[in-house]
């Protein structure tokens, strides 16, 4: 599943810390149309995972596409995925290219 972009890759982040620990910028109707990771905080789940990188553009979160979503909506989707108790991980479909 997911977008058929040859440069995309699926990264599973375990909820190994109380926070996800990423900062994102971008969203529909901004210069950066899809959310891009600008910071990864040491000690957060994303940092512990070791595969998410600054500069990754997030295409999907648990299979939900972020294209066309404005910044706050995209941030809400990621935050909800982290809060969801039924899953102890989040799947991110990311690409390094805009």
């Amino acid at each position: 599943p997911g977008l058929l972009e040859p440069t995309s890759c699926l990264i599973r982040v375990s909820k190994s810390a109380p926070t996800l620990g990423i900062a994102i910028e971008g969203g529909a109707n901004t210069r950066q149309p899809l959310p891009r990771i600008v910071t990864i905080q040491r000690g957060g789940s994303a940092h512990n995972c070791g595969k998410l990188k600054v500069g990754h553009v997030i295409l999907e979160v648990n299979g939900t596409g972020l294209r066309g979503k404005e910044h706050r909506e995209a941030a809400r989707i990621i935050a909800e995925a982290f809060k969801l108790k039924e899953k102890d991980y989040i799947d991110f479909l990311v690409t390094e290219f805009n």
Binding site: I22, T30, R31, Q41, H71, A79
Partner: peptide, 15 residues
């Protein structure tokens, strides 16, 4: 100028 240059920068959210 390209149209996208007129789009505003995004805010940044820590998650």
């Amino acid at each position: 100028r390209e149209k996208r240059l007129t789009l505003p920068p995004s805010e940044i959210t820590l998650l």
